[in-house]
Each structure stands twice: as structure tokens, then as C-alpha cells.
Amino acid sequence: MAAITTSPKNSPLHLTDLADITRVFNRFDANADGKISADELADVILTLNSSTSPSEISGMMDQIDADRDGFISLEEFAGFCAAGGDNVDGELREAFELYDINKNGLISSSELGEILTRIGERCSEEDCVKMIESVDEDGDGFVNFEEFKTMMSRSSSSLSRK
């Protein structure tokens, strides 16, 4: 499961491997020119979270665009996704809340499917159920915040070994 949050803080995108990073990068790169412009970044962020201000989007662009050429390359994007943050628990909470659409403290397979659809991923209900089951430690059919943190820490440690 890819966790996405729209905070302009340290690492608003946390993905589990290079294939996921490349897939999301390609979704952001709407015109397929191999780079993400500020407009492309804004389009995706606003699709995910309409309350993100233009100044927050600009801050995200400034943070990710390491070479200051006005665009985000795949290399910059990958580095940004893999970067750790000072406020990891807060960022994980923001990511969790993005998936928890109905704000009940749990991520359901339908909520997971809706977020994946928003970012252009096709995922059947059955696949979403399987993804939830793979991290559902208490067997209730949902992912709570503690399960989400455990899942993300596993993902982070697998990234650091690559």
C-alpha cells in the first residue's frame, strides 16, 4: 500500500519500492516528458486533498526540486520519497488520515480502493481486501493506526536495505 500525504513537510510520499515510486511518478507526470512540473504536482495534490494551498504546493515543489530547474526528476522524486522525516509519527498520522476517508480511525478495503483510484491505480475490491488482510494484525478486516505504523516501518526498513 502506498501512503500518500499532502503535507509539505519532510516526506509527504512514502512508497515501498522503486517500482511504486516510478509508477506514482509517471502518474504525476501527466504529459510524460520525464519530469513533474509545478502544475502537474498541483493537479495531483489537489485531487487528493482540495484543502492544500498554492503556497503549500509551492513549498513542496521547492523541497523536492533539488537542482532548482523548476521540475522534479524521477531521481529527485525517488530521493524525496525515501527520505526520513523528523516528525515521522505525525506524517504517518497524516497519511493514515488521508486513507481513512470516513474518519472512523480505520482504513477499509473500500477506502483503500477509493484512494488508489484517485491516484490512477486500478485495484479490484478483492485486491484491496487482500492488501488490508496482509497488514490486519487483529483480524477485524480493517487497518488501524498501529497496524498502519507497523506496515510503514516494515516498508521503510525494506527500502533502506535496497
Rank of each mutant, 00 (worst) to 15 (best):
L48W: 04
S7Y: 11
G120H: 07
G79H: 06
L74R: 11
C81Y: 02
P8C: 11
R122V: 11
D67M: 04
N104L: 04
I4G: 01
I21D: 05
A32K: 10
S51T: 14
T22H: 15
D43W: 15
M152Q: 11
G84V: 07
R122I: 05
K103V: 08
G120S: 07
K35I: 12
L112S: 01
F77D: 01
S158N: 12
T47Y: 13
N144I: 05
N49W: 01
I132G: 00
A66N: 05
S160N: 09
D29A: 00
T16W: 10
K103I: 03
T117F: 00
P12Y: 09
C123Y: 05
F80G: 07
V143Q: 07
A19D: 09
S160I: 09
K35S: 13
M152A: 13
G59L: 10
F28C: 10
S153N: 15
A78Q: 13
R27K: 09
S109L: 00
A38R: 09
A2G: 14
A78V: 15
I36K: 01
D100C: 02
C128K: 09
P8D: 13
A38D: 04
I36E: 01
L46C: 12
C81R: 05
A82D: 04
L92E: 00
T117W: 00
V88E: 12
A38W: 03
R23T: 15
A2M: 15
D39W: 06
I36H: 01
V24S: 08
F145V: 06
E40T: 09
E40D: 14
K103L: 04
L159P: 11
F96I: 05
G141D: 01
G70Q: 03
R154A: 15
G105L: 06
V129K: 12
D17M: 10
R68E: 06
M60W: 10
M131T: 07
G105H: 02
T5S: 14
L15M: 06
S134C: 05
A82M: 09
T5R: 14
M151T: 08
E91C: 02
I57R: 00
L98I: 06
D62N: 15
T6W: 06
S73P: 12
S156L: 13
L112G: 00
P8K: 12
E121V: 11
R27D: 00
L74K: 10
R68L: 05
F77G: 00
G70R: 06
V44D: 10
L116W: 08
E40G: 10
L46N: 12
F148L: 05
M1F: 06
P12W: 09
G113S: 01
S157M: 11
L18V: 13
P54A: 12
P12M: 13
N87T: 06
I36D: 00
I21T: 07
N102H: 01
S53H: 08
D62V: 14
N31W: 00
D89Y: 12
T16C: 11
I115M: 03
I119D: 03
M152C: 15
T117G: 02
T16F: 14
E114C: 08
I107C: 03
D20M: 15
F77W: 04
C128R: 12
F80L: 04
S55F: 15
D39I: 08
K162H: 13
N10I: 14
I119Q: 04
G90T: 02
G79F: 08
I101D: 10
N10W: 14
F145D: 02
C81W: 05
R23S: 14
S53C: 04
L18D: 13
A95N: 08
E91N: 04
Q63I: 13
C128N: 10
N26Y: 04
